[in-house]
């Protein structure tokens, strides 16, 4: 195991470790800490226009306390976007991680052929940017181009609009599942390969079936890796942005505030209301902090022992 050695001697290096960490800390301050602070600052303020709001000096920033937060939280559209994304995220997470686990177990089974080919093929979508993946699937969904429509018509199903109001969520979930299964599969598969084969031989001698070995030995040993991939996937999925933004030009079924992040983008850059955007960002951050804190505890315990 790659645990940090316990009891690594305190060296007399003095300032050296701080020096080595300085570039990372400087970047962190400028690109994470200061932006967060600036967002909090903006979220407590608002532009005030005096007179007609024209000319220099007529626009002033004032402190408004929690007004922007009140507005953000009482905005029905914001919660509607959360409901949409939560439904989408649950579907994606269950199917994507379920498929990743099944594929990883299949790859690890001794009887499978073409394992290498399948592993590379299933991992391949990881190399396709979300924007390009959305473009490709978007074209596959378009009736004028789609082989999927040809296929559906061949079996007698006609008139399905894969980009319609009722279906576009599923079409988008398919893109995310397609893009994410391979990476998670590889994480789980790598973990499986590191388990000693002796366990399986012992179980086989005791008469256990391959099924029993997979369910009773492999899955329990994968639990830490499953939790880790789940938390990573939750964080990535609730931040969904590229897919709906890229699909919008070819469908009318997605609003400009379909996901919470899209609302922040619209407020900040389309409507130009930075203050609302800042408050909404903070609310999003707080909501995603819940799975995140669990993740931090996990990282500290799993990967590095208790030495953090």
């Amino acid at each position: 195991m790659a645990r940090a050695r316990r009891g690594a001697r305190a060296s007399r290096a003095g300032a050296i470790p701080y020096l080595y960490l300085a570039p990372a800390i400087a970047l962190f301050c400028f690109f994470v800490a200061v932006p967060i602070g600036y967002t909090v600052y903006l979220s407590l303020r608002r532009a005030k226009f005096s007179g007609l709001g024209l000319g220099k000096g007529s626009r002033k920033e004032i402190f408004v306390g929690l007004d922007n937060y009140r507005a953000a939280i009482s905005d029905g559209e914001f919660w509607a976007s959360w409901v949409r994304v939560l439904g989408y995220a649950i579907g994606v997470l269950v199917l994507m991680l379920g498929l990743a686990l099944v594929f990883a177990l299949l790859l690890d089974s001794a009887t499978v052929r073409f394992g290498r080919f399948s592993r590379i093929a299933i991992f391949l979508p990881y190399a396709v940017p979300a924007v390009v993946a959305t473009l490709l699937w978007g074209f596959l969904y378009l009736p004028s181009l789609s082989p999927i429509h040809d296929l559906l018509e061949a079996v007698g199903i006609t008139g399905v609009d894969l980009l319609g109001p009722g279906t576009v969520v599923f079409s988008m979930a398919n893109i995310a599942i397609w893009g994410g299964t391979g990476f998670n599969m590889l994480v789980l598969y790598t973990q499986l390969r590191s388990i000693s084969r002796d366990y399986y031989e012992a179980a086989r001698i005791d008469g256990a079936s391959e099924w029993a070995i997979a369910l009773r030995i492999k899955v329990p040993m994968l639990v830490p890796a499953i939790v880790l991939t789940t938390v990573f996937s939750i964080i990535a999925t609730i931040q969904v942005f590229s897919e709906p933004v890229t699909l919008r030009p070819i469908t009318n079924a997605l609003s400009s505030t379909w996901s919470p992040l899209m609302k922040v983008y619209r407020d900040a850059f389309v409507t130009g209301d930075l203050y609302s955007a800042a408050a909404t960002s903070i609310v999003i951050a707080v909501i995603s902090l819940i799975p995140s804190l669990g993740f931090l505890r996990l990282v500290r315990r799993r990967a590095f022992g208790e030495d953090v």
């Binding site: 962190f28 400028f30 200061v34 903006l42 922040v264 800042a278 960002s281 951050a285 995603s288 931090l296």
Partner: peptide
């Protein structure tokens, strides 16, 4: 912990103020 915490901050929370700065 602080550095790793950066993974958890939603990208849009950072991208907008990063742009402004």
């Amino acid at each position: 912990t602080t550095l790793i915490g950066g993974i958890l901050v939603p990208s849009v929370v950072l991208a907008v103020p990063q742009y402004l700065l």
